[in-house]
Design a protein around this nucleic acid. Structure first.
Lengths: 334, 334
DNA sequence: CTGTTAGCGCATTCAT
DNA sequence: ATGAATGCGCTAACAG
């Protein structure tokens, strides 16, 4: 049977309030008493009930991470980063999938907060940009932070990397190798990062004096299948690209797959670039050139903003980092 | 401010007990009263506190899924499957990473149960085979189920696929294409599935009248890096294999990567086979031949065993399914 | 320094 | 069919 604070108090020969004091590291407990209580806790292997604590004090020591993301790698790393910081701070992480397209979306988040007494929320893309939710959270005065927001940046702390700069740099890097026909696969329209990365691509082309060819820009959805479809179309063009920049790693994997199937060798005949959450890109290494996108670090830092110290209103956490893996080649002769 | 059951009672003009009755679908409430209460619930957007409920009744309506697994895909799919069934049954899923090698491993799980009042546990490999934990759970009388256990199968319900049969079939399939030097990359020693799959490989060789060449069997750890290393060694042998059977998808990805790097074309010059949790294998399609391993379904069914109806002591849930993707080739001429 | 009392929000006897 | 009182395990005033 689960021991309670009363069992501990009885064994230590004190009142439950004294036990509570020890558990919460409060002052005004004599050395000896404290030790006796601690021994009883050990002996009984007592662990305070989070439910009881949540009721008694106002807060639950739980935060929720909300996501609606098609990429297992993104989800896994975001979760890992947030959980790590939670652990360190003695919080528990509620990991909650949601559906931003549902008419009940905001209601469901509200229900989550009320049911769990969550102390705060961490929003990951594309939840991070749902205006209706942001409004509701502000109204309720629920603390929250955002990962990679695309708008309304003034309303809460957030973490992000500079997608425009990163995509610009990648595009210029490919151009620097000699590529002049560089295709781009756009991400999911619901994600503001998709727009930023596209903007970076265009800035990169412009900086290199390359004209944008609309036929080389394809809409994707940040998932494997859309990258694959886009690459199939691109590679069957009369004048195909010599490089394809897919704006996340799942789509890059789709591009690699399509190229394999068409017998096109990477990187000798086609250069492929992507955004990298480590594992996926490593699986495809060496054909892939990637931007290192530390999802885990973004989530860790966001959690820290929510729970740790007094956060500034806005934080620019991480610069982008361009990382070249493997041997992206200059364009093949034609 | 969060509405409570008292607010609902006041608005509906009844006592909190009546509200409680309506919330829990109990009998002995008149039609009209029930409707009035429901309207008040809607109007106030009332959601009962899980913490208060957990205290008042004995159970928390929460279950925990324990994992200690290096594969993001595995973790993601297991989580998704378990969460889905939880949702349907009105439970909340606590998704908990742990470290089976820690000396505090059992103590930490015990702490989790006491802190959260979890009603039951779902154990995924390799947690599923930690004898010390199983003993403790039995002693405490905590309900639990296991996914793909390798031993002590009598003690609780579990779900699994037949790894021995699946690996046998895959090996025989490769042999049927004409391969006679089929290599095998073994999984992590802590997972019983690693042994089962190796056994299947051996049975397959035997059934085809092929002698096992110890040089063609390499130890891996179910992660990308170990698959890559194993393949590098295998492909540099004096007499390299014509097919490599990696016993999970992360390792298969490593094999594909190593082959690419060495300029070996798949599947023309090397056939690669793996175990597939869909996404990873799809990313590498078409070079890969895979066994379809529905992690998500296994987790869903395990959760159902834990929460749904009266489960039998043991359930054989799913036969394995061999899935051929793309065009695995016969062995290259030498 | 330590103990007593009163809730936190809900379900659960037991009355009515 | 409905309501008042009691308690789940803990913390928070408020004594002493």
């Amino acid at each position: 049977m689960r021991p309670t604070i009363r069992d501990v108090a009885a064994m230590a020969g004190v009142s439950i309030k004294t036990v509570s004091r020890v558990l919460n590291n409060e002052a005004h407990v004599s050395k000896g008493t404290r030790r006796r209580v601690q021994e009883a806790v050990e002996a009984l292997r007592f662990r305070p009930s989070m439910a009881a604590r949540a009721l008694a004090r106002g807060r639950s020591h739980q935060v929720a991470l909300l996501y609606d993301n098609p990429s297992p790698y993104y989800v896994y790393h975001a979760q890992t980063g947030a959980r790590e910081r939670c652990r360190e701070l003695g919080f528990r992480l509620i990991f909650q999938e949601c559906d931003i397209r549902s008419s009940e979306f905001v209601a469901e988040v509200r229900a989550l907060i009320d049911e769990t007494h969550a102390d705060g929320l961490i929003l990951s893309p594309p939840v991070t940009d749902q205006a209706a939710l942001l409004t509701e959270l502000k109204r309720r005065n629920t603390p929250f932070v955002r990962i990679a927001p695309g708008n309304n940046k003034g309303i809460c702390p957030y973490t992000y990397i500079d997608d425009v700069a990163a995509a610009t740099e990648m595009t210029r890097y490919l151009a620097g190798l000699g590529h002049r026909r560089i295709a781009f696969v756009v991400g999911h329209a619901a994600h503001s990062s998709a727009r930023d990365r596209l903007r970076g691509y265009r800035k990169g082309l412009e900086a290199e004096g390359l004209a944008e060819d609309p036929a080389l820009v394809r809409q994707g959805r940040y998932d494997y299948e859309s990258g694959r479809t886009a690459a199939q179309e691109l590679l069957e063009l009369g004048r195909p690209p010599t490089a394809i920049f897919a704006s996340n790693d799942d789509m890059a994997a789709g591009v690699v797959s399509a190229a394999h199937e068409l017998g096109i060798r990477i990187p000798e005949e086609l250069s492929v670039a992507g955004y990298d959450d480590t594992d996926m890109a490593r699986a495809l290494w060496p054909p892939l050139t990637t931007i290192h996108q530390p999802t885990r670090a973004l989530a860790y830092a966001a959690t820290d903003l929510l729970l740790g110290g007094a956060p500034p209103a806005t934080v620019r956490l991480l610069e982008h980092r361009l990382v070249i893996r493997g041997s992206t080649a200059p364009p093949a002769k034609r």
